[in-house]
Design a protein around this nucleic acid. Structure first.
Lengths: 334, 334
DNA sequence: ATTAGCACTCGCCCACCGAGAGTGCTAATT
DNA sequence: AATTAGCACTCTCGGTGGGCGAGTGCTAAT
């Protein structure tokens, strides 16, 4: 689709622009990369590349900057993924082994490592499967007439809720109720739970209602979201102007990032969304690299990077891939 | 300490500056507030106020701006706290009643309401007491040789950890182990737990170690931190320059806000920390209004607001106070 | 004690200018 | 036909300089 020379040139332009953030001009490219042509020739080629939409000029008499289309072509055809050094992988792996085995910490660590490694914002969600099943209910007395209802779901998810009763209820009653409910309903999904408990002391009804509520809530939700790297992404020069910065922060701060991240059309491998391909208005100048992780058909989460379109795709993509596989392995142990 | 007229003038200057963010000049103050003196007199008084350090000039021939000392004096002697309208209180109260009784949501809601109500950044932490006691251990089987260890602590705190065993362990063994541990150790604090279980199957030892680890971790930690209002605070004009903004965000993003928030010297009522009184370098231009909430001697959390020194103290302080009492009531029910 | 009057100080805005980088086009060269 | 040297042109960026306006401090009069 693009002549070889033009491809090579586009490659150079992108590499250059990604690392300097400055529009790249013909003379500069020639001098720096020992291209065997004169600036004039390069200019000619650049004009063509611009006509075809791969690069743009911010203004007349400035150098060229890659367009979304340019990056897209780069990611799909030009880029040679960097290979992560063995030492680098080892270092990352090592950090995971050093950590306590509290899952939350894994995800948080993954986000931190990723953000640091690619100097951009990183998101990791805890794994979720489509289905939510009850594993265990536990009732822990709090005060005379209240208890904590702890619900353990499949994939080690835990939700809790405070229950307030109309009258004092003693510990054994709670224990028995929990026993009954576990006996009857363990392994079922929210949809399969009855609205009324089969044998129906009032207590069981209250608890069941709470369980159903928590499970329904749960099956709607995505995994918990872990983030890191706000600082990294904000110090990128594209966000020097503060309005831009605020726009971006608004996106990053959202409780769920679902508005920003196209979870629906997530294919199997790595997905890359570039610039205006984003549905979200505020992210017109950002790219996302993300991947699913976890067992086929089982629980899966997301690991991704968000940064300006001027991003080191060749490094970011393999890094995301590596972390996805790492998390996949860790989660498989559960 | 300050003549009445000077106090009144300082009051005017602060009100004016807080609402406009513009240095306030003598003529302006006279015209707008119908002060029964001429600009010249006001200038004289302003000069005195400046000598005494209550206000400063950003540069010659600019109006005056309150100094930290000025705000301090205002907060302590001048300010008349606004009273929250009954309707406003009701609206806030109402939102809490509408919410599910999952505690996390209370705290998140509190932060959101507060941030919105005072147009600044708000923090709420879940309540913690000094002591951490074991209420209940639960072992939920995951795979053949792994289980989820769910630990319920006092005040409805829950922590979990994945346990990996060397060999398959069946469900009843887990149940029995949990029973033994609960029998022996429920009600104890981390320090009181033995390093080796008294009767010591290997399983019990593994679990006990995990429990101790979680509890020790827990007793160091503050409550979970809930935040809201990054957007509000960033759109304040003092953060228009993006470096300032980044500095602030770095503070706000920290996992624990402990660096920013002086939890140690927290007195009983509302604490106000103004500008350079902050130990944190990056917060030289920010103020914090915060309060403890919760039972006397029991578990307590923090509710606070962070914004530029130019803050509506007269509104912020009663709002923080109100939310603290509200959360106190809610938590007391647990 | 207050105030009118006045000279003075700065920050802000805007217009202007020159330097520099980069372009497109044309004509000459390979 | 492809490449390149040469050149005129364009546009951004940084610095300069003046005018405006808001605000001040001081002095002398009330």
């Amino acid at each position: 689709m693009l002549t070889e020379r033009r491809s090579a040139l586009l490659n150079l332009i992108i590499d250059e622009y990604v690392s300097t953030a400055l529009p790249v001009g013909s003379q500069y490219v020639v001098r720096k990369h020992h291209v065997p042509y004169s600036p004039a020739t390069v200019r000619l080629e650049m004009a063509r590349l611009e006509e075809e939409g791969y690069i743009v000029q911010p203004h007349t008499s400035a150098g060229r900057v890659p367009s979304d289309k340019g990056y897209r072509y780069y990611v799909e055809s030009l880029m040679e993924e960097e290979t992560l050094g063995l030492d680098e992988r080892e270092m990352i792996r090592h950090q995971f082994h050093q950590t306590e085995r509290a899952m939350e910490q894994w995800f948080q660590l993954a986000a931190a490592v990723l953000a640091h490694s690619v100097s951009n914002f990183a998101v990791v969600t805890s794994p979720r499967s489509r289905e939510t099943r009850l594993r265990h209910v536990q009732l822990v007395p709090l005060q005379e007439a209240s208890a904590l209802c702890v619900v353990v779901l499949n994939e080690a998810r835990i939700r809790q809720q405070v229950l307030a009763f109309r009258e004092p209820i003693d510990e054994t009653a709670l224990l028995l109720a929990a026993g009954r409910l576990n006996e009857l309903y363990a392994g079922l999904s929210a949809a399969e739970l009855p609205e009324q408990p089969d044998a129906a002391p009032e207590l069981d009804e209250t608890v069941l209602k709470a369980v159903v509520e928590l499970m329904e809530q749960e099956s709607l939700a995505l995994g918990d979201v872990f983030r890191d790297g706000v600082h990294e992404v904000l110090t990128q020069p594209e966000f020097a102007r503060s309005e831009r910065m605020i726009e971006l922060i608004d996106v990053l701060e959202q409780r769920t990032l679902s508005a920003a991240i196209p979870i629906g059309q997530l294919s199997d491998g790595i997905s890359v969304v570039i610039g205006a391909e984003n549905s979200n208005e505020a992210m017109r100048e950002c790219s996302i690299v993300l991947s699913r992780y976890g067992a086929e058909g089982g629980a899966s989460g997301i690991v991704g990077v968000l940064g300006p379109t001027r991003m080191r795709y060749a490094r970011t993509i393999p890094t995301v891939r590596y972390l996805a596989s790492l998390l996949g392995d860790l989660v498989a142990q559960i």
